[in-house]
Each structure stands twice: as structure tokens, then as C-alpha cells.
Nucleic acid binder design. Structure first.
Length: 894
RNA sequence: GGGCGGGUAGCUCAGUUGGGAGAGCGUCGGCCUUACAAGCCGGAUGUCGCAGGUUCAAGUCCUGUCUCGCCCACCA
């Protein structure tokens, strides 16, 4: 047998590098296609190609890897499909900035050159995040890496676009959209973000007088954006508003211009707000746009796409930036006495999610997806349970969102992205939408055509990710095998952006949901529960954490902090705790391996399982069951917790101690052999259980075990084996543990130094308890902190020595002879307190048992349980009283 | 304004169908016991936000209420 041993300390850096390379080179990450096996596929939420790993990615990918490794070890056909997203605005932004440093603008460069440049950037610097995922241990099938703009996926995008267009689910039209003047592009509603409360602008509410065109008087309107008045086409009042009824139908003179605009009545106007008169700017406000449409007002554009005043406004203001125009307008109103007053007002203006510039509603020609029909089917898919959202509470968010969807603006005035496959004819002005590039107008055959310069919203291609990555629109074997995906793992803040849209597209194009489960995890926060933000400076680079603590420590900490539906707190103390756990495992492994060095399964000795061996096997079996259950329900915290407590509390704290007598001076060769076998067996199973969460550590130790194979990651995951189940021995050992704890308690409470050995007497209530105690007595003496000089087990009915302190453990009374070692006064006080506590508990139980309704209506097993509790409490109280009287004896004698 | 989720030990939080209140950290006390002092053993601490209700039985279900947070929304 080859000599294998662990180093004194675990070197995570060395192990991570070594084993990741080993796994990758061995092809273990590659998906399998075994016909007999179940299929399990997760497609990675594609990180932006510009992305840098942050803690959210670390969490997201850890959880996915746990699921993937778990299912892979169970022998399923597993595919973790990796890839990156082209991230339209983000990527264009990065490259533009690079160009800016070189003193070139993208316009000077031209579209084609610019795109070449972006591709070059992507090849050289993009996708760095994928190598960071490898550091984390992610077991993606890297041979199948995809990019949202690679050839296959672009074809999918094209197919979907044209197909939706043909079904009239995509249309082009002039509508009001959010516009980012800095990025010079339309944005979808989701790309407009509200600033933090603290960052809200301290704006003003301006009260402006609009004089009546004929006659005296004026209407005063309130606005936060005085510059938009240059585009006003009406003033609206509520039809119910008595103050203004006379004004309806009249005209007012729009200050700063020579326009006369009507006063109209519209129920949208809130009588309580401001003056109750609302200026209407259909060109630059969503509500006003709707009102304008209702009243046929038109929507003049006063502000252009770059945020500057247009030719529509009086010459004086033309070309001014919207904020300069505001200043100018306010100044002019003030001098002409039309500015009645101003009030401070908190302004929550929407901003571009990318550059944080305040967006401007602009009317323009854009492409939209008609989401109504798509959403309907996507809602139904969740309602019917075809896709299950975990946690359940998020389903409501999903419905809420889906039922109130507006059409999705999918065109972006960018260069980087999937260019819209529509051509406009300069001759007949018809449009040609096509799966293949065209050179002629489909309607008049003219070659005088021009392609729509816009590209699609990045989320459009992301929405196809669950099937486009598998080869759709081709009918590939992968598509057949892995669609629908088994699970989608992502943070809940992405539900609307992405999950909802994947659902719509999946159901539409595959006639089948994209995934059967959606698991939504929380956001990563700092140890104080704060959001990660630049201003707080609480960002931590996960790679730095991996360098310092190891990938496994980070992964395990993230997993055990992942409570369903809640945000995850990641503080370094938590990782430190995990590091201690790793050290514990390492040391327990060293102990096991060094003590099993002379273990030879084929030496002819028949292993003789001790009660402790049977106990730990039974406990392991329970743990295995629990882990399977928890993985199946995405309870990552519980999964990690179950393994943690099994290894630390049961395997290390009890079982290892109990094996020592067998290992150091065994009673028989069979017993020693069984102990060694059980140690190895339990360690091996524990490592496998833990492997999905801590891949590197478990591989490192596994490789040092005597029967290690090529890799733990392709070993079979432990399955429950009820042959190991042993309720009888579990009950017996539970009693032993109680007795050991009782002895420790008695020693500790009576301040008996560890160097002082004491005599322990056990008084069983009946013969069965006596037999149990006798059979297992070796286990009572061996754990640390018991320090018994002798152990005597008497028969039932024996009275404790009058100088002993006692404690009851179920059917057994534990007595410790500590005459002369204990302060009787203190002991009596302690007993007094404990008696009071027990009496309170007993009273509660008695209350129940004395209640007729309880007795008649409660299930019998519950009544029996209460009887049991009552008997136990009474017995403990009796013991306490006896001890107390003995203590009084000692005190009085002393 | 609408929707959702929290309020349990000093701190951070578990608690899956209602049946004797838990973990980790911290704290206090005892231990260098031959895997581990990055460790071992033990103690203390809770009107489960508040008020009602359902039930034999409520941290758990219902109603109301206070409070913190998140998401959505067309109060200029």
C-alpha cells in the first residue's frame, strides 16, 4: 500500500491550482449524454463581457456549482452552460472611453471600424470574469462557452425577431420613450433607475402665472421643470374642480412665447397638488403625452435627443442645454413678474442605469415587443406549476409584474449589439424585415435601401439564452436533452429584467418553459446589512478573499449564509469561522488517516462493529437523507448546516473520542479493524457530502485516502442506506451522551479540577436501563472531561451515597462522590434555582394534562408525549430534592 | 398610492406541515486530555414587536396596530 499522508497544514492555494487543472484536463466538466441517465442543465446567467467578479457573482455561481456538482456526482447527465453577454451600452461605453483617451470619437471612426475595435477589445480583454469563475471552482463545461453575439446566437436572435415581426408581436412606431441624452439612446423602463433617497435632487417647485389670453386674470401652474413650458400645448384642470370651471375652454397666453394654449379638463389632474392646474407638455412627459393624445394636442419637441432646446422654442433659448434653459426661463419669468413663488421640492427624476444622467422622455420612432400575448402564456406557465419559483413569495412579484407590463422598447441607438434586420426603401418607403441580409426592397425591388441603424436591447438576446446556447434554431441533441433547463439560479433583483423575459420567449418559441425551477437568491450585503456601494467603500474583491481564505472558505460561507429568500451577509469574521471548520476537517482527517495506516481490509480479521461504529453510521445515514432533502428544496443553509454539525459535533466531538480506546489499546483486533473501517467510511462519505460546497479541500483529502480514485468529483454521491439505520443504538448512545454530559456538568458546577478524579455511580430505574448502561459503560468513561476514577453501576432501587451529588438522565440517576470537594451552600442555592425552573415547566405540563378538552381532543401521541414529559420532570425534581437534602446534611455536618 | 418581506438571546440570524424556544458569534467559568489552543468542556441570558381572535395547544394560522426595509406606480 502506498504511503499517503496529509501535510501539517492545508495549503489552499496549492490545492486549488492543482485540482482545478486536474479536473479540467480530465474532461470532468464536459456534459455527458448517457441515454439511461437523467438530464440536468443549468445555463449560467451570462456575466457582462466587461464584467469583473463581484460578491454577487461569487454567490450566484457557488450555488449553481453546488447544484451541478451534486447532480454530477449522482451520475446524471449534467451540463453547466457558460458564456458571456455582450452588454450593449456597458461595452460600448468602455471602448468609447478607451478611444477618448486616444483623442478619437466613435463618429470619427465610423461604425464598421468602431465595431472592429470593440471585437478586438472583446478578444483581448473581455470575458476576464470567466477565468475568475475558475478560481472559484466553477465546473462549467468550458468547451461549450457561448457569447450572445457569436454566430449561432445571432442567428437565434434574428430568427426570433423576424418571427415575432411576422406574428405582429413586434412593431415599429412613434411613441414616447425614455431617452438618455448622454448615451444618446432609448432605454426601456427597466433601464431607468431612481436615485437613492439621499441622492435625490433638491429641486424647486415653481409656481408660474399663465395670463388669460382674453380678459383679466391668470391661471397659476406648478412645475418642477419650468423649461418644459416652452413645449406646453395646454393647461389642464380637473373637471370637478369648482375653482376652475369657468376657465375650461378659454385660452391662456404661454409666457416667454407668443403661443395661446387652451385650458382643458382632464380627470387625471389632482386637485390637491400644487394649484390644481397642470401645464401639459406632451412632448416631454409620459402623462402629458397621454393627455395630449386624448385631447388631440400634438406633441411638439422642445428638447432634442442630446438634451438641448430645439428650434421649436423661441430663438433666445435655442441650443441651450435643458438645465441652462431652465435657469434662463426662470430668470425671464421672474423679471416679467410671472413667477409667483417657489417651494423646495424633493425631485426623484429617473436616471440612465448606466451613466446616471437624468433621462428625458422623447417621442421617437422605436421598435417594440407586444408583450401582452407573450406574458399571458408566461403567467400561465407559472400558475400551472410548470415552472416553480423558489421562494414562493417571489411568484407574486412575478405575477404582479407580468400583469402590468407595458410594451417593451427593444431598439437602442447604439452600434454594439444585434443590428435590427429591417431595411427601409428610399423609393417606395416600405420596410423589409428579413432573416437574411437583403440588397433589394421586397416591395419595389429597388436597391436604394438602407438598413435600420439601431441595435436590439441586450436583454433581447439574453431572453433566448436557455435555448440559443443549446443550438436553437437547429434541433441539436443538446437542445433535446437539456431543454427545459432544470434550474435557473439568479438574484431576485433580476426576476423582471431577465427571468420574466426568458419565460416569455421560451414558451413562445419552444412551446415549453425554459426551466422547471427558478431559484432566486438574495443580494450580498456587508456584515452590517448594508448594500454594497461605492460611496460606502464596502466592496470586496472575491478574488482577494479567495487568495486569503481559499475558494472553499468563501463558498461554504456563502452557502451557509444563504437562507431562502433573504439577503446574504458576507463579513470576514464569517469566513474566518469557516476557515476554522476547514482546519477541523483537516485535523480530523489527519487523525483518521494516521490511525488507519495499518488498516488492511484483506488481512483476514473479521471486523466487529462496536456500538459507536454503528451509531456514527446511523447518524451519517440520517445526515445523508437530510442533505438530499435540502438540496432538493434549495435550502443551501440547511445543507451546509447539516454537514457542518455532523462533522463537527458528531464525528469529531463524540465518535473520534470513542474510537481512541479501540485504536490505542483495542479490546480485540476485530474491534480495532471495525473502528478503522468506520473512520475511513465516515470520512469518505463526509468528504463526498461536502464536495459540492468545498470542492478543493475535499479533493485534497480524498486523494490521501487509501482507496482514492481519479477524483472525488466523479465519485458517487452518498445515498441513504437504511441498513445503517439503527434506532436502538442511537437511543442507547443518546443516553450515554446524556450521562457523560451529566458528569461533566456536575464536575463543572462543583468546580472540581480536571486533575481530580471522581467516583461515578449510576443508579438505573430498572433492569433494562442497567443492562444498557453496563453494555455501553466504556463510552461513558472515555470522552474528555469525564475523569472518572471508577464507574459503578448498581441495581434499581439503590439509594445514592449521602455525600454524592446527583443528576437524572432519563431512567438513570448519575451520582458523583465529591465529599469534601464541594461548597454545599452554593450547591443548595443552585439546586433551588433549578428546582424553580423545573417546577414552572411541570406546572405548564400539568395544566395541559388537567385540561379535559386537551385530553379529549389532542391526538393520543401528543397526550402520551406530555405524560412522558411530566414523568421525566417529576423524576428530575425528586432527584434534586434528594440531592438538596444530602447537601444540607453535608453543610450541617461541616 | 399599491404590492412584498422582516421585527425571536448582547450581536447576526435559523425555526418546512401548529405540539417541551435554537445556532454561530460575543460573554462568564474550567481545561495545553497524545487530531486540532485555528482546540476541548461547561454556565448564564428570551413577556418570540404590541393587542385581540381561532384552537385542547400559537414564534408558527386569522384580524388589527406600531415599526424597519425592499419593489412597483402617472402627484406635475
Amino acid at each position: 500500500m502506498t504511503e499517503k499522508a496529509l501535510d501539517k497544514f492545508y495549503d489552499h492555494a496549492k490545492a486549488e491550482d492543482k485540482w482545478y487543472r486536474h479536473w479540467e484536463e480530465s474532461g470532468y466538466f464536459k456534459s455527458r449524454d448517457d441515454e439511461d441517465k437523467q438530464n440536468y442543465c443549468i445555463v449560467i446567467p451570462p456575466p457582462n463581457v466587461t464584467g469583473i467578479l463581484h460578491e454577487g457573482h461569487a454567490l450566484n455561481n457557488t450555488l449553481q456549482d453546488v447544484l451541478i456538482r451534486y447532480h454530477r456526482m449522482r451520475g446524471w447527465n449534467v451540463l453547466w452552460q457558460p458564456g458571456t453577454d455582450h452588454a450593449g451600452i456597458a461595452t460600448q461605453f468602455v471602448v468609447e472611453r478607451e478611444l477618448l483617451e486616444e483623442g478619437v470619437t466613435k463618429e470619427e471612426m465610423g461604425r464598421d471600424k468602431f465595431l472592429e475595435r470593440v471585437w478586438k477589445w472583446k478578444e483581448e480583454k473581455g470575458g476576464h470574469i470567466l477565468s475568475q469563475l475558475k478560481r472559484l471552482g466553477a465546473s462549467c463545461d468550458w468547451s461549450r462557452e457561448r457569447f450572445t453575439m457569436d454566430e449561432g446566437l445571432s442567428r437565434a436572435v434574428r430568427e426570433v425577431f423576424v418571427s415575432l415581426y411576422e406574428k405582429d408581436l413586434i412593431f415599429r412606431g412613434k411613441y414616447m420613450v425614455n431617452w438618455c441624452p448622454r448615451c444618446d439612446t432609448a432605454l426601456s423602463n427597466l433601464e431607468v433607475v431612481m436615485p437613492e433617497e439621499s441622492e435625490a435632487e433638491k429641486g424647486l417647485l415653481y409656481y408660474i402665472r399663465y395670463p388669460l389670453a382674453d380678459g383679466d386674470g391668470a391661471l397659476t401652474v406648478a412645475t418642477t421643470r419650468p423649461e418644459t413650458m416652452l413645449g406646453d400645448t395646454a393647461v389642464a384642470v380637473n373637471p370637478e374642480d369648482d375653482r376652475y370651471k369657468n376657465y375650461i375652454g378659454k385660452k391662456v397666453r404661454l409666457p416667454l412665447t407668443d403661443h395661446k394654449i387652451p385650458v382643458i379638463a382632464d380627470p387625471h389632474v389632482d386637485m390637491e397638488f400644487g394649484t390644481g392646474a397642470l401645464k401639459i407638455t406632451p412632448g416631454h412627459d409620459f402623462n402629458d403625452y397621454e393627455i395630449g393624445k386624448r385631447h388631440g394636442l400634438g406633441a411638439p419637441q422642445a428638447i432634442d435627443k442630446l438634451g438641448k432646446m430645439t428650434d421649436y422654442v423661441p430663438e433666445k433659448y435655442r441650443g441651450l442645454d435643458r438645465y441652462d434653459a431652465r435657469k434662463a426661463a426662470v430668470a425671464d419669468l421672474d423679471t416679467s413678474g410671472l413667477l409667483e413663488k417657489t417651494e423646495p421640492y424633493k425631485l426623484m427624476a429617473g436616471r440612465c442605469y448606466r451613466c446616471k444622467v437624468v433621462v428625458e422622455p422623447i417621442v421617437s420612432e422605436q421598435w417594440f415587443v407586444r408583450v401582452g400575448p407573450l406574458a399571458e402564456r408566461a403567467i400561465e406557465a407559472v400558475r400551472s406549476g410548470k415552472t416553480v419559483i423558489v421562494p414562493k413569495a417571489q411568484e407574486k412579484e412575478y405575477y404582479n409584474w407580468m400583469e402590468n407590463l407595458r410594451d417593451w422598447c427593444i431598439s437602442r441607438q447604439l452600434w454594439w449589439g444585434h443590428q435590427i434586420p429591417a431595411w427601409y426603401c428610399r423609393d417606395c418607403h416600405e420596410m423589409t424585415v428579413s432573416r437574411h441580409d437583403v440588397t433589394k426592397c421586397r416591395h419595389c425591388e429597388s436597391e436604394n435601401i438602407e438598413r435600420d441603424p439601431d441595435v436590439l436591447d441586450t436583454w433581447f438576446s439574453s431572453a433566448l439564452w436557455p435555448f440559443s446556447t443549446l443550438g436553437w434554431p437547429d434541433e441539436t441533441p443538446e437542445l433535446k436533452r437539456f431543454y427545459p433547463n432544470a434550474a435557473m439560479v439568479t438574484a431576485y433583483d433580476i426576476l423582471k429584467f431577465w427571468v420574466a423575459r426568458m419565460m416569455m420567449m421560451g414558451v413562445q418559441f419552444m412551446e415549453e418553459v425554459p426551466f422547471t425551477d427558478v431559484y432566486l437568491h438574495g443580494l450580498v450585503r456587508d456584515e452590517l446589512g448594508r448594500k454594497k456601494s461605492k460611496s460606502l467603500g464596502n466592496f470586496v474583491d472575491p478574488i482577494m478573499l479567495i487568495d486569503e481564505y481559499g475558494a472553499d472558505a468563501l463558498r461554504f460561507t456563502l452557502a451557509i449564509e444563504t437562507f431562502t429568500g433573504r439577503d446574504v451577509r458576507l463579513g470576514e469574521e464569517r469566513i474566518e469561522e469557516t476557515k476554522r471548520f476547514i482546519n477541523k476537517i483537516w485535523n480530523a482527517s489527519q487523525f483518521t488517516l494516521s490511525n488507519a495506516r495499518d488498516f488492511d481490509p484483506s488481512d483476514g480479521t473479521e471486523p466487529d462493529l462496536s456500538p459507536a461504529d454503528r451509531w456514527i453510521r446511523s447518524r451519517l445515514n440520517e445526515t445523508v437523507k437530510a442533505v438530499h432533502e435540502h438540496v432538493g428544496t434549495y435550502r443551501f443553509h440547511e445543507m451546509a448546516d447539516a454537514i457542518y454539525h455532523f462533522i463537527w459535533d458528531e464525528f469529531c466531538d463524540w465518535y473520534l473520542e470513542w474510537t481512541k480506546p479501540e485504536l490505542y489499546n483495542s479490546s480485540s483486533p476485530g474491534r480495532k479493524k471495525a473502528a478503522q473501517a468506520t473512520l475511513l467510511y465516515t470520512l469518505d462519505a463526509s468528504l463526498k457530502l461536502l464536495h459540492p460546497i468545498m470542492p478543493f479541500l475535499t479533493e485534497e483529502i480524498y486523494q490521501a485516502t487509501p482507496d482514492s480514485g481519479a477524483s472525488i468529483m466523479v465519485e458517487a454521491y452518498p445515498e441513504a442506506d437504511d441498513g445503517n439505520k439503527d434506532p436502538e443504538i442511537e437511543a442507547g448512545m443518546a443516553l450515554v451522551r446524556e450521562i457523560v454530559i451529566a458528569v461533566r456538568n456536575l464536575r463543572s458546577e462543583n468546580l472540581i479540577p480536571a486533575s481530580t478524579k471522581t467516583d461515578v455511580t449510576l443508579i438505573p430505574d430498572d433492569d433494562f436501563a442497567r443492562e444498557t448502561a453496563e453494555r455501553l459503560q466504556g463510552y461513558i468513561l472515555s470522552p474528555p472531561q469525564v475523569q472518572a476514577a471508577s464507574l459503578e453501576i448498581t441495581g434499581p432501587g439503590v439509594s445514592p451515597d449521602e455525600k454524592a451529588v446527583t443528576r437524572r438522565c432519563g431512567p438513570i440517576q448519575v451520582c458523583l462522590d465529591i465529599a469534601g470537594l464541594v461548597d454545599a451552600g452554593e450547591e443548595i442555592a443552585r439546586i433551588g434555582k433549578e428546582t424553580a425552573k423545573l417546577e414552572a415547566e411541570l406546572k405548564k405540563v400539568m395544566g395541559k394534562l388537567g385540561n379535559e378538552k386537551f385530553l379529549s381532543k389532542a391526538p393520543p401521541e401528543v397526550v402520551a408525549k406530555q405524560e412522558e414529559i411530566k414523568a421525566e420532570l417529576e423524576a428530575r425534581l425528586e432527584t434534586l430534592r434528594e440531592t438538596r437534602s444530602r447537601m444540607e446534611l453535608i453543610r450541617d455536618k461541616g
